[in-house]
Amino acid sequence: MAAKGKIKIDQVLCKACELCITVCPEEAIRLSAGLNDKGYHPAEFCKDSCKGCALCAVMCPEVVIEVFRE
């Protein structure tokens, strides 16, 4: 069975560069409809398909993604 993962994004600090979205093999991240204090639409975790590969965190310039795996 494939590993199951989860990510936590700090939406307050996210600057919506979308780089996590470009590298996620599972398409499990998207921009949220709401705005944060800085005026960005922060990234949000949207699907259970996450495997915990951490590519998003490797890419994330703001260091706002934490990755967990079972």
Binding site: A54, A57, V58, V63, E66, V67, F68
Partner: peptide, 9 residues
């Protein structure tokens, strides 16, 4: 779940 990636100290 174990932490795979978190902010460096």
């Amino acid at each position: 779940m174990k932490t795979v990636y978190t902010r460096p100290k």
